[in-house]
Design a binder for these strands. Sequence first.
DNA 1: ATAATAAAGGACAAAAAAGTCTTTTAATAT
DNA 2: ATATTAAAAGACTTTTTTGTCCTTTATTAT
Lengths: 149, 149
Amino acid sequence: MGMFSKSAEYAIRAVFFIAKSSYLDKKVGIKEIANNIDSPEPFLGKILQQLSRNGIVRSSKGPNGGFYLTDEEMNKKLSEVIKAIDGDEIFIGCAMGLSQCSEEFPCPLHGEFKAVRAELTRILNGVTLAKFNDELVLGQLKLNRSKNS
Amino acid sequence: MGMFSKSAEYAIRAVFFIAKSSYLDKKVGIKEIANNIDSPEPFLGKILQQLSRNGIVRSSKGPNGGFYLTDEEMNKKLSEVIKAIDGDEIFIGCAMGLSQCSEEFPCPLHGEFKAVRAELTRILNGVTLAKFNDELVLGQLKLNRSKNS
DNA sequence: ATAATAAAGGACAAAAAAGTCTTTTAATAT
DNA sequence: ATATTAAAAGACTTTTTTGTCCTTTATTAT
Ligand code: FES
Ligand code: FES
């Protein structure tokens, strides 16, 4: 695996896609999101449920329903998305898996890994869901590796 | 999960323990390692097999056998340990799981995540298996969170 | 009111990761 | 040579993650 779980990866791609759509004042359904971010549709549904329950995205049912963000969600941080799906272990856990990361009884990697985690946290706190809307609309950034889009 | 898989976490703790033992000119068996790093004994056996096949640690069978490092392995980098167990996805993979990380068609997080990965790589390349032997012998660093050490 | 739509929820299924157990192979001490 | 020791190897089980499918609930358009 990479840095995050598969679920979290789908979640990241999905929220940016929803952000871009909401920026263009469009709600989007699971199917459209899945097609645009290369994720299995029903599995993505489960992930969106979690994000919705955690207040990361909003949803409405019925015709013309779908997922969207208000200004409130647009200002959420990417770190909150990760935490909603993967928990906060990556932000606070010990590099070599000791039951808790401790200053008093540090593991060998403690000093150096504090820095890595801090950098990761800084970056994920600095990225809002709205941050890349302009570039995404202009097509300068990608949420998939497909032929089209 | 944390940054690495459970297997990789056990591997990291194990190699540092073996390094410390070899530094004191002692071979160590699976049981002793498992007891000292809080890992399930048979599962650790599997991990040590992989490390052995990948040339990270050496082993000898029979009475007084066990795992140990020569000067050659003492100079291996922690990044090699991680790669032997988890592969190199964490060092080269796209933050949001696109099939490949690409400069030409970057994902929104590309710029910032390059930095995180570079920092991670720099640190794991900078740590040799021998690096913490003195501190481990002195008991200043821990490989478990148990009552006794 | 009714039909159509789309997310929510729950029950499953498949695959991967984590963990266990038993047998085999190699080394050494007697 | 033989018994003993300890890792290697392989088959297996359990748990977690990933993914699917079907039913229910809420919303909207007619
Ligand atoms: S104790 Fe291991 S990272 Fe802090
Ligand atoms: S394209 Fe995503 S990190 Fe490089």
